[in-house]
Design a protein around this nucleic acid. Structure first.
Lengths: 209, 209
DNA sequence: CAGTGTGAAGAGGTTCACAGCG
DNA sequence: CGCTGTGAACCTCTTCACACTG
């Protein structure tokens, strides 16, 4: 619990650090250093030390960082020392991929319910879920402790669905719809649009084929 | 063609501007202002004007921006005034979702070939593609003009596949594998890891329920 | 006179460099 | 003696505020 506010860009790097630490653990490593992490992740060692220093002193001078300990600390900072329930909206191909993805659980998340608006899909199963009617979204979620949504619907309905999600108490949205969502303050959005990510790289590609 | 180098963070916002302009066109709008774009996207109008000013003068004082003209300029800047061929590696659920996604084409991309390493999948079809043997990746791509890859394989093989992609002349990788890739300079990577994006938001969520 | 384009000022983020500790 | 943690310096990015123009 830092007394100074932590830059969001720093918060954004912590999950990447945690992911690397988890991989190192699987490789049997127990100790690492800011330099080793930096080389592996393409950051500088000073940046990693500075980032961590916002939250406490997790290393030992002359020695480095204990990987299980630092992992635990990062999980605590990111509030991953629990499982967050997640609602998935949209049961298309992308929704199916997300619903079937094995790997959310071990990283702190569990999809608990899936909605779609297509009458032909409602009642059908998607992986281990039965697809629910989106008109039940607000009442269903309001009684739950779910605060996180994954939005995998077409862009044209994304804002309308977002309104319902917010009304239902959702506070964090992972938005796969290729549009910018408008949300009240206190609601957080992360956007994943493959075309946007690709277009960010074409700028740097050379002209000739 | 700016004489000063453009900050990457500015380049990263251009696709978002372009996406909004495209949506405005579909809404029948022809003129906009930095203020209108800013409100819609959650930026400041000064930032939008400053970002665009790196590349030229696209607006009319007192009037604003002509949407078709600005869109065309952005497409040119981002080298989207052509279709980029893309290779997809990984024919799992996510690969299927990407292969079936209608919407790359209109934003400048076209998946041209799909690889997987699973012998049970090679030769099978995935949407309009026949899945190719990943051992043919290097020779197949080397003769093509494909410079962009989408990587939808498990983390444990992502680095090995990346080596092959680079060897095959790939210069931009959209990485869905939950691991940090190491690439030579001149190769660009964008990472999409839903857990990382979610974990970035849990930091801000309140403790209680 | 509305709205762009832009130097200048202000914030914010990164890197340096080294004291200090195990 | 190696590596962390951290003020200070540096650099980058954002915002301000206004001259300018259609």
């Amino acid at each position: 619990m830092p007394s100074h506010p932590v830059p969001d860009i720093v918060v954004g790097r912590l999950p990447v650090y945690l992911r690397a630490l988890t991989a190192m653990t699987q490789e049997g490593k127990v100790i690492t250093s800011s330099q080793e992490l930096a080389t592996r992740l393409g950051f500088t060692s000073a940046q990693i030390r500075k980032d961590l220093s916002h939250f406490g002193e997790f290393g030992k001078q002359g020695l480095g960082y204990n990987i299980p300990f630092l992992s635990e600390q990062l999980r605590h900072i990111l509030k991953l020392d629990r499982i967050w329930g997640v609602v998935l909206v949209g049961a298309g191909d992308l929704g199916r991929a997300l619903a079937n993805f094995q790997g959310f659980q071990e990283r702190g998340f569990e999809i608990r319910i899936v909605f779609d608006s297509n009458p032909a899909k409602i009642g059908q199963s998607l992986g281990r879920f039965v697809i629910q009617d989106i008109d039940q979204l607000v009442p269903s979620l309001h009684e739950s402790d779910i605060r996180i949504a994954m939005l995998a619907v077409p862009a044209r309905v994304a804002q309308e669905v977002t309104g319902r999600l917010v009304e239902a108490g959702i506070r964090a949205i992972l938005n796969y719809a290729p549009t910018t969502l408008s949300v009240p303050s206190g609601v957080f959005v992360q956007n994943i649009d493959p075309a946007v990510h690709l277009q960010r790289m074409t700028y740097y590609l050379l002209e000739h084929d």
